[in-house]
Design a protein around this nucleic acid. Structure first.
Lengths: 153, 153
DNA sequence: AGTAAAATGATACAACATATCATTTTTGCT
DNA sequence: AGCAAAAATGATATGTTGTATCATTTTACT
């Protein structure tokens, strides 16, 4: 069984445990994100599903499906990039923390990382001092990935 | 002299030192941001300049002017909100660090804060371990401001 | 089978942003 | 002052992301 198929199995199990359905179209959108291995816009996913699976989904449906997948914690939205990416912890059983994303400003490659709790706490404290409350700190940072650093243009 | 006028004076000085021009239209866009005291979209600025100054700027020009103002470090773009906000340190003489923004997810109020160097360094270290390089870490975080926390709905 | 709920489709449009080419304004030079 | 080059701005079209709304289809359940 391919890696993608394994993840989809996990996703199906997780959905059924939550009493929701991972329908065919939802599965295809998630599969698209997993196969591509990168962040994609909703419209890119429309094209991908059409080309790869012959499934012509209207954009509206893709947005709804992405909303669903986000609620199930199977997909994250990258607000800096206006793109969506499959969660990299679908097969993990344990509950994983708030995701943090590094987005290469050159090649758009995205890495999902975990930031030390102590760092997040320091951040929260700074925010609190400014009179705000950091509820769910998904950080997104524009960076340069190593590969783009090396072949620097 | 009003506070806004004082800031504009500083901006003019800073531009002339850099050998660039703070034209009337650029001044109006910056004044709009300063007067409103909040983050605005480019199209909101088009309307604002029309209503307040009788200046009808096409959106394209506003975008160009915003680009200019960003290069001169007079305005920041909030990528999470797709809005623009006047830098809160225009009148400071000293070089100020990379800005960090808190955006209230309820009322959209924006606060520009400074995060401790040590916290930023801890963040940078985490990022480095993931094989990325955090060049200019402008963080933008969705939060709840105190006022929205209190009158919580 | 019949009905209610869930999912999906179709259509229109809103908001943000850029590409491109034309025109106007400013600058710097002689 | 007069002129050419550069800078700024205008005009127009279009691209990208996302939502509102109402219709239809599919699924679950009795």
């Amino acid at each position: 069984m391919s890696k993608v198929q394994t993840i989809i199995k996990h996703a199906e199990k997780s959905c059924s445990e939550n009493g929701v359905r991972l329908t065919n179209k939802r599965k295809q959108v998630l599969t698209g994100l997993l196969q591509s291995g990168k962040a994609m816009s909703a419209y890119e996913l429309v094209d991908y599903c059409k080309n790869e699976f012959g499934e012509t989904l209207p954009p509206m449906s893709v947005y709804r499906i992405l909303d669903f997948l986000q609620e199930e914690h199977l997909v994250h939205k990258l607000n800096l990039a206006n793109k969506y990416i499959a969660c990299s912890h679908i097969t993990c059983e344990h509950d994983h923390g708030v995701p943090q994303f590094l987005i290469c400003r050159n090649c758009q490659h995205v890495e999902e990382i975990t930031i030390k709790r102590s760092t997040i706490n320091a951040l929260k404290k700074n925010v609190k001092e400014a009179g705000f409350h950091l509820t769910s700190p998904q950080l997104e940072m524009h960076c340069l990935c190593n590969s783009c650093m090396t072949n620097n243009s």
